[in-house]
Simulated assay, not measured.
Amino acid sequence: MTKKLSKRLIRASQGAVFALGAPLGWLLIRYFQEFAIWEELANYAGVYLYMLIGTTITFSCFGWYVGHNEGLSDELAIKDHLTGLYNLRYFQNRLAEEVASSKRHQIPLSLIIYDIDYFKQVNDLYGHPVGDKVLIAISDAAQNNLRSSEVIARVGGEEFAVLLPFCSKEHAIQTAERIRETVSQVCIPIANQAVITRTISLGVASLHKDENCDSLYRRADTALYQAKNSGRNKVIVSTT
Rank of each mutant, 00 (worst) to 15 (best):
I138K: 01
E177A: 07
S101M: 08
I116D: 00
A176K: 09
I173H: 14
A96T: 12
I112C: 04
A96E: 14
P129R: 00
E159F: 08
V99H: 05
L111Q: 02
A141V: 00
V151E: 05
R147D: 05
L125Y: 04
K103C: 01
L135C: 02
S139F: 00
S168Y: 08
A77W: 05
P129M: 06
L111S: 02
Q185G: 12
G131S: 03
V151N: 06
A176G: 10
Q106T: 06
A100P: 00
G127V: 03
C187P: 07
N93S: 14
V155D: 04
I136C: 10
N87K: 10
E97G: 03
Q121Y: 11
I113V: 15
G127W: 08
Y86R: 06
R104W: 02
I190A: 07
A77E: 12
K103V: 01
R104N: 02
N123T: 01
K120Q: 03
Q193W: 10
L163W: 14
A191Q: 14
E150W: 08
I200F: 06
F91T: 00
E150A: 09
N144T: 10
K209T: 11
K133C: 06
A194Y: 13
A176I: 07
R89N: 09
K209Q: 13
C187R: 14
E181D: 09
A172F: 02
R147G: 06
